[in-house]
Write a protein that binds this DNA or RNA. Structure first.
Length: 782
DNA sequence: TTCTCAGGTACT
DNA sequence: AGTACCTG
């Protein structure tokens, strides 16, 4: 595949931690908030700011107190503290929830951070291009979409529609793909919102660097397309420092050496010159990126490669004696254990190595950091105790500065200012391993694996098979719900991965459950929303699924940039970059955003994606008396046609089922944990936490709540008491979950079009440069 | 009075 | 294997 003609997407969640807090505490919605990390000093460090607060001048890098000064009524939810450490697991889980939605749309998903993912949708775009006529695409199908270099997205579409493609500048073929890509991304973002309640922004371009770059141009809840011919327009004003990998010391060095500030100013340099000034690889990379070329592939990567936790002990909190070191290592070790247990259950893998990192304070007050690694032995039991003890052992005899003073009792020679433990070098668990694994406990009860592992299939067919698996999964869930409704048993043979029915489904039906639901929905209600009057053709093609999704629609596409030149638009766009602290243009734009936000809040304030599933049984309120009779779904707040309500409720059950996967896994873990000899008190604590989860409404409760007085039977799988007559149904539920879990597992697709799995080098003659302050651009040429 | 904590990557 | 840098 041609690397220059891909459709690469970056999905970035809007102020993610804030959204998570708002979802957990709906009272916060619409108010200015910033998430702070616990810190006794000046109200804590801000790590996320929502858009209402941003409009009032609050930004990251401020302390809580500064934020209060800018905005008296700001709310400052804080990252929970566990064992004296920030606990970000709720954000991590929310990120996984989102990523699972994204994963359905392409196998080429690369999670780049807790709230960001790259998607390569070249193939889905090509597939759709074969089935649709590009001329039928209109901007109304993809609200809140922008094309860089155009005052309105419609102008970009007209450029494509008017077969004026003779212009050398205009890459008609790719622009067409971008347009289809924008439509798909619109659907992806709608699915994310529908299923999680979170909004996100997206950048759509021909490579990762550019997708990332334009993603930040329009936020929140918007998407930006970068046509190839707009790269130079963008670069004309774009600061070098905004480009990924140039935001740090290396970027400073480049700007200083070349005496430049913008990407445009990078273009006159020849590749040779750049190689001479930096090194061969960096020079080539800079040369290419200056021309909008970036060959970095989107890797299929869902799970992190390492799991770690750390803690700073700055200033006078520095650790001075062995006891406190031990104490903190215990907490770190225990947290690793907890996260590792979860990881083992979900991903069926085991780390082979652990790394202990630490910093000590030198005499002159500066810190020096070091790390030591330990390779696990086959007999090691991977528990907190082991992590703690090994870390302690390694720590005390690794560095002179850390050795205890000979005489004074247990005092460290030098204060420790940082401690971290991480585990990595994961390997898949195989069946014939001697080491006891948590997974073994979990699987002990279930008779046999019914689904072959996807990564056992041949490389050649990987993409196909993964897609089929996705179909499988939706098909199974759908089937499961059907049979459940009919009070029939789910048939094993319908789930086989080689089931004909499944294989015959076209690949682009992989999102069928969602899309079909929406399609039916839209056929019935046409468009329940008030058509926003951006004049013209407005609603002739409203029956795109996207049209019915409640997105914040602020019409800024038409208003904000009206009358401005393209360059002004670009400048404004750049001003909108998230972390631009001192830009006046930004403030006025933020006012616009504030308006946007108010509208959005009005529309989504009712969204309760986690509301009790039993809403289905309650008579819904009539909220809309327009042409079609609709009811407001208690689950998502969406207006649903009365006759579709049952189906809509089923849809939420399907979602619920997915979300409950995790909880059931945890519950199962909980039960098995109890079989183990209680090693220590902390175990019990986590058991309590798991029990708390049981109080939450779950789909298993839904299946059992009908008649609590009926004779019950204990499920060996989850320990839940189940009405006898519901029991086989309940077992089906576990069966479906196991399958779903299995199918959810990461596949081993590495990259399309690169059968060797290796990335190309741009050039090969090794020229060494030693003076670089940063050498990390080479990551591109691994 | 301290730009946290988590994760990735590449160089030596 | 260990260090440094990059990012959000």
């Amino acid at each position: 595949m041609d690397l220059e003609n891909r459709i690469v997407v970056l999905i970035d969640m809007d102020c993610f931690y804030c959204q998570v807090e708002e979802k957990l505490n709906p009272e916060l919605k619409g108010k200015p908030i910033a998430v702070v990390q616990y810190n006794p000093w000046k109200g804590g460090g801000i790590i996320a700011v929502n858009y209402v607060a941003r409009a009032m001048g609050v930004n990251r890098h401020m302390r809580g107190d500064d934020a209060k000064e800018k905005c008296r009524e700001i709310q400052l939810p804080s990252v929970p503290c566990k064992k004296g450490k920030a606990d970000i697991s709720k954000y991590r889980d929310a990120g996984i929830e989102v990523a699972k939605v994204l994963q359905r749309f392409t196998t080429l998903l690369e999670r780049a951070s807790i709230d960001e993912a790259y998607l390569d949708i070249t193939i889905p775009v090509q597939k759709r291009l074969q089935t649709i006529n590009v001329h039928t695409l209109a901007s109304s199908m993809m609200p809140n979409t922008f094309a860089l270099g155009y005052d309105s997205f419609d102008h970009f579409i007209s450029d494509i529609h008017s077969c004026d493609s003779d212009s050398i500048e205009f890459d008609f073929d790719h622009a067409q793909k971008l347009l289809v890509g924008a439509q798909i991304v619109s659907e992806i973002r709608a699915a994310v919102f529908e299923e999680t309640g979170y909004t996100c922004s997206a950048g759509i371009a021909h490579n990762k660097i550019l997708a990332k770059l334009v993603c930040g141009m329009n936020k929140p809840n918007k998407q930006t397309v970068l046509p190839k011919h707009s790269v130079n327009i963008l670069y004309k004003t774009l600061s070098v420092k905004k480009v990924k990998h140039l935001g740090g010391k290396f970027g400073d060095y480049v700007c200083e050496i070349l005496k430049i500030q913008t990407m445009g100013q990078l273009q006159p340099f020849t590749e040779r010159e750049l190689q001479a000034k930096f090194d061969e690889k960096n020079g080539t990379w800079l040369y290419n990126i200056a021309r909008g070329i970036d060959i970095e592939l989107v890797q299929a990567k869902f799970n992190p490669k390492s799991i770690g936790c750390c803690k700073n002990f700055k200033g006078k909190s520095a650790l001075l004696d062995l006891e406190s070191v031990k104490k903190w290592l215990r907490d770190l070790g225990d947290e690793i254990e907890e996260r590792l247990e979860k990881d083992a259950l979900e991903n069926n893998r085991t780390p082979k190595q652990m790394v202990i990192s630490f910093s000590v304070q030198l005499q002159d007050g500066r810190d020096t950091s070091s790390s030591r690694s330990y390779n696990f032995l086959p007999d090691d039991e991977l528990c907190g105790e082991l992590f703690t003890n090994k870390a302690f052992e390694i720590l005390i005899d690794s560095t002179e500065g850390c050795k205890p003073k000979a005489d004074s009792n247990k005092k460290l020679r030098a204060p420790i200012t940082f401690l971290g433990i991480s585990v990595g070098k994961f390997e898949d668990n195989t069946e014939n391993k001697k080491r006891k694994k948590i997974k073994d406990y979990f699987c002990a009860g279930s008779s046999k694996e019914t689904v072959p592992k996807s990564n056992e299939t041949t490389k050649v067919n990987e993409t196909k098979i993964t897609n089929i698996n996705n179909i499988d999964k939706n098909y199974i869930l759908h089937k499961f719900l059907e049979t459940n409704n009919d009070k029939k048993q789910i048939k094993k043979e319908t789930m086989g991965p080689n089931n004909e029915k499944v294989l015959e489904s076209p690949l682009d039906k992989q999102e069928s459950f969602f899309v079909n639901f929406l399609k039916k929905d839209q056929d019935n209600i046409k468009c329940n929303q008030v058509p926003h009057d951006n004049g013209s053709k407005s609603l002739n093609k409203v029956n795109s699924p996207i049209c019915n999704i409640v997105e914040c629609d602020d019409d800024s596409n038409d208003t904000v940039y009206s009358g401005s030149t393209i360059n002004e638009e670009i400048s404004k766009s750049i001003a909108l970059f998230e972390d631009d602290p001192l830009d006046i243009a930004r403030v006025s734009n933020m006012r616009e955003l504030l308006k946007t936000n108010e509208i959005e809040v009005d529309k989504i304030v009712e969204v309760q994606p986690r509301a009790d599933i039993s809403s289905r049984t309650v008579t819904p309120e009539i909220t809309d008396t327009s042409h079609i009779e609709t009811v407001e779904c208690f689950e998502c707040g969406k207006a649903v046609p009365l006759n579709e309500f049952d189906e809509h409720a089923d849809y939420h059950i399907a979602l619920k089922l997915r979300e409950d996967e995790r909880e059931v896994i945890r519950k199962a873990k909980d039960k098995t944990t109890l079989k183990e000899p209680a090693r220590d008190v902390k175990k019990k604590k986590s058991v309590q936490e798991l029990n708390k989860n049981e109080a939450k409404p779950s789909i298993s409760k839904f299946f059992t709540k009908f008649d609590m007085t009926a004779p019950v039977k204990m499920c060996t799988e989850c320990g839940e008491k189940i009405a006898v007559e519901k029991f086989s149904e309940h077992l089906d539920f576990h069966e479906a979950q196991k399958l779903s879990r299995e199918l959810n597992k990461k596949t081993t697709v590495h990259s399309y079009g690169s059968s060797s799995g290796k990335r190309q080098r741009i050039s090969s003659s090794p020229i060494k440069k030693t003076k670089l302050p940063c050498k990390s651009i080479d990551m591109f040429f691994r």
